[in-house]
């Protein structure tokens, strides 16, 4: 691992720690986010990180502007998303069987709270960009094929590189993975802020 990699990992772990606190407070239960993947990937591989399945996933997407721009996605298996909604709505797990307004609202609010805590902490950990903060869009709820979702995440980049930086965290509640996590794909300006001494990962020259 290079010093650049170590620095980047430390920044994202800092983000995950603050997001863990926010999630635990929001749920009222012990909860953590851990960084599972932090890597540069060819775009074809990035499109497949949610897996290839005919089963729909649910999620909330937020466009991020500011010190580190990009797209943040809270994504979950359908059952895990409904279970998360039950937890937030203080109902027994298994109560929610479809996505009504209430269930959607619960997950959207989770994306807002946890995602902003995550990215604000990442901004604060950056020496040069912390003061600028982030400006997230309202989260958009979606339920779709995993490959289609990741494809759309990639296509939101203003300048599409052949290689992208991707960070993926996983949620654990009461120590157990729940099939839910955050994917952050910084745009070119975000990559420049996160990797000030690195080349654009899309620059193959």
């Amino acid at each position: 691992m290079t010093p650049n990699d170590n620095r980047l990992a430390a920044i994202f772990h800092h983000g995950a720690a603050d997001a863990s606190s926010a999630l635990a407070k929001w749920l009222g239960r012990p909860a953590t986010l851990s960084v599972e993947r932090l890597e540069t990937l060819p775009i074809e591989e990035a499109a497949a990180v949610m897996g290839s399945s005919e089963t729909l996933i649910c999620g909330c997407a937020m466009r991020i502007d500011g010190a580190i721009g990009g797209l943040l996605l809270l994504a979950a298996d359908d059952d895990a998303g409904l279970s998360l909604a039950d937890t937030l709505l203080e109902r027994p797990s298994g109560t929610s069987t479809s996505w009504g307004d209430l269930e959607r609202s619960a997950v959207v609010e989770t994306a807002n709270i946890v995602g902003c805590a995550y990215l604000n902490a990442i901004c604060a950990a950056l020496d040069s960009a912390g003061a600028d903060g982030i400006l997230p869009s309202p989260p958009v709820f979606l339920r779709d094929f995993p490959e289609s979702v990741m494809e759309a995440v990639l296509m939101e980049q203003p300048v599409l590189s052949d290689i992208v930086l991707l960070a993926r965290t996983e949620f654990r509640i009461d120590g157990t993975p729940i099939g839910c996590g955050l994917v952050f794909l910084p745009d070119a300006a975000g990559v420049a802020a996160l990797l000030p001494t690195a080349r654009d990962p899309g620059d193959s020259t």
């Binding site: 997407a61 797209l71 958009v140």
Partner: peptide
Amino acid sequence: GATMFGFQSGTPIG
């Protein structure tokens, strides 16, 4: 050619 998020201004990429 879907517009899944609607964050982009102008003609969507799809």
